[in-house]
């Protein structure tokens, strides 16, 4: 990594990490959150919800950046994310 320039403001940049909250019984299995999550955090699960739909499952929780797109794209008010922590940026990451 020696040939990678280190940005001057690297120490000031914080990368947000989000936590997904999901109310499975509200989900109607439309799949919008799974399709449009920009970081592929979600996957369609095999389990059935109370209504008989396949709700999403958080497959890669560490990749969530708390962008909130799942919250706004969900027509059922069933999924949202909150900020869990902010980590230091690094040039290796």
């Amino acid at each position: 990594m020696s040939n990678v320039r280190k940005p001057y403001d690297l120490s000031e940049i914080k990368i947000p990490r989000g936590e997904i909250h999901l109310i499975k019984d509200r989900c109607k299995g439309c799949g919008f959150c799974v399709e449009y999550c920009p970081n592929n955090v979600l996957e369609v699960s095999d389990e059935f919800s109370e209504k008989g739909y396949h709700p999403p499952v958080v497959a890669n929780p560490e990749r969530c950046l708390n962008c909130g797109l799942c919250e706004i794209v969900c027509p059922e008010f069933a999924i949202w994310s909150t900020l869990k922590e902010e980590v230091e940026a690094s040039i290796e990451g």
Partner: peptide
């Protein structure tokens, strides 16, 4: 609203 309907998204927006 049915599964996959766009009205719910309009409401969230």
């Amino acid at each position: 609203w049915c599964p996959g309907c766009g009205i719910g998204i309009s409401v969230t927006a």
